[in-house]
Simulated scan of single mutants.
Amino acid sequence: MPAERVRPFMFVAGSDRQKAVVYPLAGPAAGTGEVLVDRAPVRPADSIGDTARGDWNRPVPPTRFLHHYEGWEFDGVSVPEVLRASDSAFEYAMVDIEPLERWSHGRTTLIGDAAHAMYPVGSNGATQSVVDARALAHALALHADPAEAPAAYERERGPAMTALQRANRQLGPEAVISPAHQRAPGGFTDIDEVIPAHERAAISAGYAAAGASDPATVNLGSPYDVPVHALH
């Protein structure tokens, strides 16, 4: 889409019942000025049988969702325009699993969604999989016993990921849209009159801390760098 029709940030609008997420995947292409865009319209299923749990590859026409989003335009971003421009779409259920009692069995362990499947909010599914891999490599470098390393990794990562799974059930950083909708269902012109800046910041900061993406934690560097002596 033309870059000026998307804006260079992640756009989230709606409520805890129905929302739309739109964001660019790259900078403007040379010559055309267009950007590749991803979008995720989210709403309750029309019936229980509409979606299959865990089926992520069910193709549907992009216009299937269009009638639910007519008139959704905010600050120049038109959700119907984005949906009409889509080449393809997939429909899947927003599902997770209860936190597992354990990830590791002897020399075998789980990482990523296999260990802590969570609602896809906050961009944490892939991110935490990468962190898991670093944490597991770190544990393997520090423990000579290959059965102790997965257990150490699980002790380190398990509590934080359980907390993050539960935070995602509450919409993660997107939770800010719920009080905005509840307090101003007819819309607003000044967000500060609806949700003060300190309240918005607290929601964002709380989730960032849960996912270890807050500035203070990030600036400390990775806790999972492999010690040099372990590489020899």
Rank of each mutant, 00 (worst) to 15 (best):
D190K: 06
N124H: 00
P173Y: 01
A40D: 08
R53C: 13
Q170V: 09
L25Q: 13
G172E: 01
L171C: 01
E4T: 12
N219G: 15
S47H: 12
T189A: 15
A139V: 07
A3W: 04
P8I: 09
S86C: 15
P24F: 06
S88Y: 14
N124V: 12
A230S: 15
S86I: 04
M1Q: 03
H181K: 04
E174N: 10
H68F: 07
A230V: 06
A89M: 11
S78K: 06
E4C: 11
R169V: 06
R107T: 07
W72E: 01
G172S: 05
V228T: 14
L25K: 14
V194L: 08
A13E: 00
R17G: 07
N219P: 02
G31L: 06
R134A: 08
A210L: 14
V21T: 09
S123F: 10
G211D: 05
A30T: 14
R7P: 00
H229E: 14
T189M: 08
E154R: 01
A135H: 02
P227L: 05
G206N: 12
G122P: 03
F11V: 03
R5Y: 09
V130L: 12
P215D: 09
V6I: 15
L231P: 02
P173G: 08
F11Y: 07
S222R: 05
A209C: 06
E193Q: 15
V176I: 15
Y207R: 02
H116C: 13
H143Y: 15
E156C: 12
A45L: 13
S47W: 07
A89D: 10
S104L: 05
T108C: 11
I195N: 03
S104N: 07
R157M: 11
R200D: 03
G33W: 09
P196Y: 11
L66P: 00
A29H: 12
P44D: 05
I97M: 05
E174D: 15
E101N: 07
L164V: 09
L164D: 02
R39Y: 04
V226T: 05
A45T: 04
S123C: 10
L231Q: 07
P80Q: 10
T162W: 03
V6R: 00
I97K: 04
G14E: 03
A201G: 06
V6M: 01
A210P: 00
H232M: 12
R134G: 02
R64T: 15
V82R: 00
P227R: 08
P185I: 11
F90Q: 07
D50E: 15
L136Q: 02
G71T: 11
S129M: 08
A115W: 00
S178W: 02
F188M: 09
T189I: 09
P8Q: 14
A29D: 10
S204A: 13
A117Y: 04
Q182A: 15
A26R: 10
G187H: 10
T32N: 05
D16L: 01
